[in-house]
Write a protein that binds this DNA or RNA. Structure first.
Lengths: 194, 194
DNA sequence: ACCTGAACACCGTTCAAGT
DNA sequence: ACCTGAACACCGTTCAAGT
């Protein structure tokens, strides 16, 4: 899950990349995105503030690792079965991603600010692209459709996290699905007219 | 445009809410969202760092004002003509909003983090709702559709600003329109099936 | 190679004081 | 009422030093 190549024993390596990311994730879950701080992480893993820089070059790299770690929790096997209708597969993946992002409030904003440049991010995109290819979309349209789905997932969750006005969780889930259905309808029309 | 009620003369009011917001906007345009700083604004308008707090209670209020100021630049008159096809009107408004947001890089993230709680934000939403009502959508569906369109506009621009991989501006605009067309197709299907 | 103490250049915000 | 100086409690990051 986590990139750990280049790790060679030095004098007492008390930590690991993963330990730092775990600390960052728990900070994210407990206190929100703006409390994910190099100094907070260092305190949680029991090291001086600058000790973190042995494992990551800067804060952006840590946040990148956090995003990758979250996206690593997605199990792709459940969406690759090509015998299922492509819309059901996209819908299931979109629901899974929403759940993963909502489980870590603040992670959406990290993804929106530093998008899609990691191995696990690409893996999700590749899964979407393969489903769309199964649906009969030519590669160029599949790219556009994949981007559209990313926009919907990330945009929806970002607004959902930020806006406390719609208090009922079930209503928010229904709204998410309603929008996703419109998007998939629009894509279906395009597939039918290809 | 800017909320200026409650302004009464005191001993030498050297500034105004608007002057502070203008400073914030220029900072946003020049240096990006994370450089929009209370201290930076204060320096630009020639006041001590805490002088800003005479005009705004905290930084969040300043950012809120910035968002409102940006959204105040949208001229709604061009989208209210009900004789035009509703899809064209939504499309024109969505393009206008994208332009406004791209003109101030970083503003999207402000909107995604503090959404829709100001007068100008509501004005944009109301315009969308009235267009959708003209299209024949019942109020409940119009709310869902309006939210879907917000998600698309904000999500698209956020990813566009953050991701420098697609370098050609024309390609990015085409991608935006492609996605918007799918969304509007999905809504058209729903309108037709009502 | 790894970790630390100390420092640098920043933040947002508060508070007492001056006018 | 408005503005300031000073301070508080933070940031990310660097650098020289210790092991």
């Amino acid at each position: 899950m986590v990139d750990t190549d280049g790790v060679r024993p030095g004098p007492r390596r008390t930590l690991s990349e993963e330990a730092i990311l775990d600390a960052a994730l728990s900070l994210l879950a407990e206190s929100g995105a703006d409390r994910v701080t190099i100094r907070g992480i260092a305190a949680r893993v029991g090291v001086a503030p600058n000790g973190v820089y042995t494992y990551f070059p800067d804060k952006a790299a840590v946040l990148h690792g956090v995003v990758e770690s979250i996206l690593g929790g997605v199990n792709h096997d459940r969406f690759v079965d090509p015998s299922l209708p492509w819309r059901d597969r996209i819908e299931a993946l979109a629901l899974e991603l929403r759940g993963e992002l909502l489980a870590h409030p603040g992670s959406v904003h990290l993804l929106l600010a530093d998008p899609m440049t990691g191995a696990n991010s690409r893996a999700v995109t590749d899964t979407v692209l393969s489903i769309l290819a199964d649906a009969g979309l030519p590669p160029e349209d599949a790219m556009l459709a994949s981007h559209l789905i990313s926009v919907h997932v990330l945009g929806s969750v970002a607004l959902e996290v930020a806006d406390p006005r719609m208090s009922d969780a079930e209503d928010r889930a229904a709204r998410y699905l309603w929008g996703l259905t419109r998007v998939l309808d629009g894509l279906s029309t395009h597939v039918g007219a290809r």
